[in-house]
Design a protein around this nucleic acid. Structure first.
Ligand SMILES: Nc1ccn([C@H]2C[C@H](O)[C@@H](COP(=O)(O)OP(=O)(O)OP(=O)(O)O)O2)c(=O)n1
Length: 890
DNA sequence: GACTATTCTTAG
DNA sequence: CATCGCTAAGAATAGTC
């Protein structure tokens, strides 16, 4: 039986790249030889292996450094024997829960400040007393744990020092991590002024952390506001429907008037009400005024300098040195919003569809009388209507609003863009194409950063709406996929089928936090998950929503990202993993959902210290309450609009029109029991147990045999890759592929690490074009696609690599040297010669991710470590080759 | 080829 | 000292059988 089909497949293929040879070996170190030595080393360790005697250090991953007594090998043996794991390198993906050291230099002291550094006696005495003693009593560094990474003023360590003896039932937790009731320090009354308490951030494990974070998070506010508005208008619509008993409105019509109403630079405008003297200066709203603070909103003065919402302060200051930052005023935003919606409701429009706290779509067709299809005076009437409406909003909300108007939603939205700031614009159907074709495609709703770039860098070089029109629907589908492609083509024709008469019912509910998340160990992760799920369940109950599936999301620090990202307590550059599991029976109970959530997160097997964010979403929802599951529509009894819907061919809307009456006819909501619902789930699978894929039957001997057979081949001389160098160097990235904010973040990050930053995205783009070479330089293109096992297509290669990792994982196999060398050679060649310079980096990341995903708890520690090492080597080599051959460096 | 899970993209 | 990087929907894509 072939134990290693993959190895063979890889071996059979020879790489074409002539340059492959010279990159391999000498310049970048003979990785094969390194690898062989590594195996040898691991073999030696294997000989030291002793049977497990206890679980004392379960979940501990321990790094030993410096001279110790007992000696390091002896400590390793002890730790292994008592359920702990040894970590051989601190850097990169290797991680440690504890460091054992007798003494530390000042430098190391600093470096290890965030770790639990203990004396070797901790190990010895814990074993002697047969229980894990509080590490705190054996500290090597006599300052408070967490001091350097936590802004939380030692709350954690207070808890520890004050309850050193408190026993914790959970076996996984160190005693010092008792946080059931985090001690929140009350400031001494005599010296701390009233509001200074407000400024401090609660410990991440404290349920108050989430409360605090939400209170300050603009994005949270935006989302919550939006949800509230949605529900409010859904409900309103349901009531209004009941009263009218019949839906008075057509889903669409060819000659409606839709408004898109939106405040100008909303947050700034409102916040400026408290700082009127700054009105004509460049102003923005943000949490902080330092470099890594996000700009939530900036006024039009600042925009002239190129500043925009979502930009970081640092960059904005470069563009606009005089930029002034003022604080959020969430209450003010709510008030202005309330005023806006009040005005809009008073209009008694045909339809009112909330878009966000500061904007709404309004169908006012029946409010502006039209005499026949020939307008003449109609435009004038619209204009006056808009003028009056804007005046009314301004007087009630005290901030400027702009309004776009058109015969459908997309034209109204585009019109709004043209109207701003403090203006109005109506695009009548007759002039639609003339108006929109010259505009950049970024004006189209649905085309964001990524799609705009994709269209521009395609061979069609599409940058204007007119070009979409000329390119045709098929081209758009080719570039953007079926749905979006079709929709964007239609937009380019001024056509939009969007129906705002229905506010769709919720399809998911979730929470996520990726700021301030710094967790020391598995137990802390579990606690924080519990807090998140509590919040989630609270909302589920309020909204009467349950769902049969949970999806967990993990932000994991990218292996090459620094521990401390540029943004204070930010998530930094991360890998994002998601995984779902079924929830059965339906429930909104915290305990049940927490267990599921914890299992999902555990299945990622992420070192707790690398967790930078967590999120959970309930999907496949059903409403639990008696309230409407009917889709709401907001129309008003007085409305007399006629249904003139014959002309426009409808797809989605028509479908809905058919189903809607049925569900609103029978007012019975499709309520579902929250508790066991056996009959409704005959076809349902049982909950997929997260993270339980135990791979037994690992025949270690077999592998050793195989390995030995394959290993002793042509030994080579060159030097091994130096891992310490490897992990300390800076990440190379696919700059042109990343959103600008991310690019900046990575740039900042590397600046922090390096004395001299060497970063120039435009250079990267120029020297490694994905397409442009074709145009300017069709003949001399040095870059060509590199084959791997006969494949060029990136997704095929991914599959191949994935299978490699996965098969190895399921068989508890170490990476074969031949395979590893082949992959590395391929990566090198790709990095150096492939037309798409980002490919090598993406594939290296892909391998890393597959290793993280596949090499779960089932895999033996040494093997996992080896794969981890391998991914680090791949990433490093790719980075270096990119730098040396293309000058692409971060 | 149909079905499911995961990832990507967008918006405000 | 910093800073508060959320939420939901829809669609594409990858994976499974
Ligand atoms: N990345 C973003 C985008 C928006 N917002 C907030 C602040 C904005 O004031 C509000 C409304 O967003 P808009 O997109 O409507 O932008 P503005 O109202 O600020 O400016 P304008 O609508 O004039 O372009 O949402 C935010 O916090 N972060």
């Amino acid at each position: 039986m072939p134990l290693h089909p993959f190895a063979k497949q890889l071996q059979e293929h020879k790489f074409e790249g002539e340059k492959g040879e010279e990159y391999e070996g000498h310049e970048y170190g003979d990785f094969g030889d390194y690898f062989r030595k590594k195996l040898t080393k691991l073999e030696n360790q294997f000989q030291e292996y002793v049977p497990v005697e206890s679980d004392l250090f379960k979940d501990c991953i321990i790094y030993i450094t410096g001279y110790t007594r007992p000696s390091a090998p002896e400590l390793r043996r002890l730790i292994n024997a008592h359920g702990g794991k040894i970590c051989h390198y601190l850097a990169g993906k290797s991680y440690a829960t504890h460091i054992v050291a007798s003494s530390l230099t000042a430098r190391k002291r600093q470096e290890y400040a965030k770790y639990k550094v203990v004396k070797p006696e901790w190990i010895v005495e814990s074993i002697n007393s047969n229980k894990r003693l509080p590490w705190h009593d054996f500290r090597t560094i006599k300052t408070e744990y967490n001091h350097s990474i936590s802004p939380f003023a030692g709350q954690n360590s207070n808890a520890a020092t004050e309850d050193p003896d408190k026993q914790v039932v959970d076996e996984q937790v160190d005693q010092e991590q008792v946080v059931d009731e985090p001690v929140v320090e009350e400031p001494p009354a005599d010296q701390i002024p009233v509001d200074s308490k407000d400024a401090s951030i609660p410990n991440i494990l404290d349920p108050k952390f989430i409360e605090h974070f939400y209170k300050h998070s603009r994005l949270h506010h935006l989302s919550i506001w939006k949800g509230d508005l949605k529900r409010r208008f859904q409900k309103l619509a349901a009531e209004s429907n009941q009263r009218t008993s019949q839906r008075a409105l057509p889903a669409t019509s060819s000659c409606r008037v839709i408004l898109h109403v939106d405040f100008d630079s909303f947050f700034v405008a409102v916040s400026l009400l408290s700082h009127p003297q700054l009105s004509d200066r460049a102003v923005c709203v943000s949490s902080g005024s330092h470099g890594s603070s996000d700009i939530a909103s900036c006024n039009y003065v600042a925009r002239k300098f190129g500043v925009h919402n979502g930009m970081w302060m640092k960059q904005a200051r470069e563009l606009c040195p005089d930029l002034i930052a003022i604080p959020f005023d969430f209450e003010g935003y709510e008030k202005a919003s309330a005023a806006l919606y009040e005005v809009l409701l008073e209009l008694k429009p045909d339809l009112l569809f909330p878009v966000s706290v500061d904007e709404a779509l309004v169908d006012v067709t029946s409010l502006i009388p039209r005499n026949g299809s020939q307008d003449e005076g109609f435009q004038q009437k619209v204009s006056e209507f808009l003028e009056n409406l804007r005046k009314e909003i301004k007087s009630r909300a005290r901030v400027d609003a702009s309004i776009g108007a058109g015969p459908n939603v997309v034209l109204a939205k585009i019109a709004l863009r043209l109207a701003k700031p403090n203006g109005q614009k109506y695009i009548p159907a007759s002039r639609a194409l003339d108006v929109i074709h010259p505009l950049p495609i970024s004006h189209l709703p649905g085309l964001g950063y990524s799609s705009v770039k994709k269209l521009a860098s395609s061979k069609y070089e599409i940058t204007t709406i007119g070009q979409i029109s000329s390119a045709g629907q098929q081209v758009m589908i080719e570039l953007l996929g079926n749905k979006i492609g079709t929709k964007m083509y239609e937009y380019s024709q001024g056509i939009d089928h969007t129906d705002i008469s229905v506010i769709p019912s919720p399809k998911s509910i979730g929470v996520e936090i990726s700021w301030g998340v710094r967790l020391a160990d598995a137990h802390e992760v579990d606690i924080f998950i519990g807090n998140l799920i509590s919040e989630l369940c609270r909302r589920m109950k309020v909204q009467e929503i349950c769902g049969s599936q949970m999806t967990a999301k993990l932000y994991k620090r990218h292996p090459q990202a620094p521990i401390n990202p540029p943004k204070f307590l930010g998530h930094g550059h991360c890998e994002i993993y998601t995984k779902s599991s079924s929830v059965f029976p339906l429930t909104d109970q915290v305990e049940t959902l927490t267990k599921i959530a914890q299992a999902l997160i555990r299945s990622f097997n992420c070192p707790p210290t690398d967790v930078r964010g967590l999120g959970f979403q309930i999907t496949k929802v059903s409403t639990t309450g008696q309230e409407n599951t009917n889709q709401g529509t907001l129309n008003f009894p007085k409305s007399t609009t006629k249904n003139t819907d014959q002309l426009t061919p409808q797809t989605t809307p028509r479908k809905r029109t058919l189903t809607a009456p049925r569900s609103s006819g029978s007012l019975t909501p499709k309520k579902r029991p929250m508790t066991p619902d056996l009959e409704s789930s005959p076809s349902k699978r049982g909950p997929t147990r997260a993270g339980n894929a135990p791979q037994f039957m690992t025949v270690t001997q077999q592998f050793r045999e195989v390995r030995n057979k394959r290993e002793p081949k042509e030994p080579k001389e060159p030097e091994p890759v130096d891992l310490s160098v490897l992990s300390s160097q800076i990440d190379t990235d696919v700059f042109a592929e990343l959103p600008p904010e991310i690019q900046r973040e990575i740039a900042l990050q590397s600046k922090r690490q390096r004395k001299q930053p060497n970063f120039d995205p435009s250079r990267g783009r120029r020297s490694a074009p994905t397409e442009p070479a074709r145009i300017r330089d069709p003949v001399i293109s040095l870059y060509k696609p590199i084959e791997f096992c006969g494949m060029v297509d990136e997704s095929s290669i991914r599959s191949k690599l994935r299978n490699w990792v996965r098969e190895s994982a399921s068989n508890d196999r170490r990476p074969y040297r031949e395979d590893a060398e082949n992959v590395q050679r391929f990566l090198i060649t790709t990095a150096a010669e492939d037309q798409d310079w980002g490919k090598s980096k993406r594939l290296a990341d892909w391998i890393n991710k597959q290793v993280a995903l596949c090499m779960g708890a089932a895999t033996n520690e040494d093997i996992l470590h080896e794969w981890t090492l391998l991914t680090e080597i791949f990433s490093d080599v790719v980075r270096r080759v990119l730098r040396d051959t293309r000058g692409i460096t971060v």
